[in-house]
Design a protein around this nucleic acid. Sequence first.
DNA 1: CGCCAGGTTGATTTCGCTCAAGCAATGTGG
DNA 2: CCACATTGCTTGAGCGAAATCAACCTGGCG
Lengths: 243, 243
Amino acid sequence: MEGSKSSTAARNCFTCQTRGRTEWCVLTDEELKLVDKSKMSRDYLPGEVVFHEADACHGVHCIESGLIGVRKMNANGQEILLRLCHPGDTLGYRSMLASDDHNNSAEALEPSTVCFIDAGTVRTLLGRNPTLGLRFLTHATKDLGAAEDKVLQSTTLPVRARFAHLLLVLKDRYGVVDADGAMDLELPLSRQDMAAMIGIRPESMSRTIKSLEQDDIARFTGRRVHVRNIDDLLDELELTEGL
Amino acid sequence: MEGSKSSTAARNCFTCQTRGRTEWCVLTDEELKLVDKSKMSRDYLPGEVVFHEADACHGVHCIESGLIGVRKMNANGQEILLRLCHPGDTLGYRSMLASDDHNNSAEALEPSTVCFIDAGTVRTLLGRNPTLGLRFLTHATKDLGAAEDKVLQSTTLPVRARFAHLLLVLKDRYGVVDADGAMDLELPLSRQDMAAMIGIRPESMSRTIKSLEQDDIARFTGRRVHVRNIDDLLDELELTEGL
DNA sequence: CGCCAGGTTGATTTCGCTCAAGCAATGTGG
DNA sequence: CCACATTGCTTGAGCGAAATCAACCTGGCG
């Protein structure tokens, strides 16, 4: 609602920079016109919510720019951050396809622009272009594989190893590694949100960071991280084994 | 290989009892003939492995009868049981669709009959019948939702609550609830495997069972469980809240 | 200026793991 | 048929990692 007029009007699926990376890249021009016509674009500031858990699902959201976090809460109000979503990613397809309410919530972590495509349009497209369904299927299987990894990690690895793994994942998108194996990383997340990503309390996050610094594996200054040698992080993942 | 001649020859997709419940129910007679022709059926005894983690994935497995457990191991050899699969369920579709190696293993937990359908045939069918892809997509989204729930639970709920939840899930398939809210349950799993399902050690499983018995919530004799009142299990899920 | 959210630190507690032993049921070989 | 391993489960003692509770510090903002 509070999206400025310009943001809702100017967006165009045909010129959208991220289209090549999305499931929508398989659409014909005619089909894309359908999307372009019915889509609604909106800008979000950090902290603004795209949709809430238990909201009715009226369609899918496609990220044009920014960073969106997908959260999930349990009955006691404890929250985790399930995953980060980037430009080109489509949100809420799970609930839409299951004709279900949203079972998690999405919140902007950076200033973001997100397009909404209503369920009717999506269903029309799925019926018309079978390849689109297969694209979503591939996406779903990828998410499923990641979720299963996360289950395993959270039950078998200690906190420090999980955090090392998180840093390694963030490296791929936000890090720079030099020839010596050193890495510089600009974190896209607050400490709280990093804690929520690996399912721990903020206090434990602080202590884990401290322990990595004491072992001279990494240095943290604000959201900048310097890792002496990436291999040290990899070692953390297997260190639990006795010999 | 060790499947008896009768088992490999006699199975027929057209007469398969579970077909109505599978994604394959959308196939035409002609398409089903293709499956029937190329499928390989095999019987498994408890403990026998259908496929291993990191094995190349050559197709999907469809459960005709029995019970299959999907396991996943981490680098240190610790193992969890991700989910149980029942007649009609299709295994390994994730890896097949991602053209990836198996990222978990499947093992018979009861005497089971499982059909194998090679990747080529599946791909042919996916191309020919778009509805099949949508069926798999729905299946994947369901698994994804369940996996995300499991992530949340394993990081936020204490062991006892997770076990209560497991009993409630098993109730739907293996339990009988009477008018008073009492439940009788015949467990399909050993204690070890229940422990693996909620990501704890067998010793902790024993202690958790004991604590439920001491609080007079349930009685365990072998694989038979009697729960005084289902509501007590539901209470466990929210008990962590203060006030 | 004072407030407040985000972050750090310390003290204490607790939950689940580790290690170790014991036990019942089942199997095996002499 | 008995001595002996094996496997699944239980129990106990002690430990340790992470949560909890509480205080405090910092920087941004009204």
